[in-house]
């Protein structure tokens, strides 16, 4: 089995709301001072799922791919330290400011260039934009079947055996290879690399492919190729100033709250 893990580096989702700033002129998040970007947590879980399959199937290989800035090397190195074999960075100004479609176009082109890929594992969504569509768009680009929001994935006679999380329970399904799977947090915690693995990963080389290496038209990727246009990114107004219920006793506070909710006709 050769599994590709798609990994994205994102601003740390644990950034306190007070440090979260948007540049209105560019519609971009201003990187918070002193808070390093991180590997999207769902992608780390996708890597864990891929590594468990690698460990259960001798001769398997895991390649981690990331489209992003030069700094995304760190996300790739993290997955290499977890146990992935090879890393590919897709870094080119032509890829910037695209949408899910152009991201998937670039990732799918890289997967085609690798050539011998049996499965692609992605996080269920990137924990910055939370769209949850790149994995499916890669599947459609490659013409492969897909299963999303997996809490379990193993190899089986039919290809992959997947357990999906649905809103009202779980679904077991089989997908023939090659296939794309997006993995959810219900899968479990990703492993934490130990120091020797981190040292070893630091020595592994990461291949960098540019738009020309992938045979892509620069006009079909990044901002030029995107179909979803971001018009405005803004920080929503919170509910306003909270009104704290006065009262010497919990009973009095509760009575005050019920009175408010009745007056608002929501209780």
């Amino acid at each position: 089995m050769h599994i590709v893990v798609c990994a994205k580096q994102i601003p740390d989702p644990e950034t306190p709301p007070s440090a979260f700033k948007i540049d209105a002129a560019t519609n971009k998040v201003v990187p918070a001072q002193g808070i390093a970007p991180v590997l999207s947590q769902f992608d780390a879980i996708a890597a864990e799922a891929a590594l468990r399959i690698k460990e259960a199937n001798a001769g398997s290989k895991v390649t981690v791919i990331s489209m992003g800035a030069e700094s995304a090397q760190a996300a790739i190195k993290q997955v290499l330290a977890m146990g992935a074999d090879e890393g590919v960075l897709l870094n080119d100004p032509a890829f910037e400011d695209g949408d899910s479609h152009t991201t998937a176009t670039v990732l799918a082109a890289a997967i085609k260039k690798l050539g011998d890929v049996d499965a692609v594992f992605c996080g269920r969504q990137a924990a910055d934009w939370d769209m949850g569509q790149v994995g499916l768009l890669v599947a459609e680009d490659l013409g492969w079947p897909a299963a999303i929001i997996a809490k379990g994935v193993t190899t089986g006679a039919a290809g992959l055996q997947i357990t999906r999380v649905l809103e009202d329970g779980f679904e077991s399904l089989e997908a023939p290879l090659p296939a794309v799977v997006t993995v959810s947090n219900e899968f479990g915690e990703p492993r934490y690399p130990k120091l020797p693995q981190i040292m070893a990963a630091a020595k592994k080389t990461v291949t960098n492919w540019k738009v020309g290496d992938l045979g892509l038209d620069p006009g079909a990727v990044g901002k030029a190729g995107s179909r979803l246009k971001l018009e405005k990114l803004f920080i929503p107004e919170k509910g306003g100033k909270v009104e704290l219920m006065e009262g010497d006793t919990p009973q009095a506070q509760a009575a005050a709250l019920v009175a408010r909710l009745m007056a608002d006709k929501i209780l």
């Binding site: 709301p17 919170k238 509910g239 306003g240 909270v242 009104e243 704290l244 219920m245 006793t249 919990p250 009973q251 506070q253 509760a254 009575a255 709250l257 019920v258 408010r260 909710l261 009745m262 209780l267």
Partner: peptide
Amino acid sequence: GFAKYGIVGDWKAVVPALVEEIKKA
């Protein structure tokens, strides 16, 4: 920061009181 109404207090006291007040209302 997100709430319209708030009660600062121990839920163990507040929630039973709230239950009672809702029933009364």
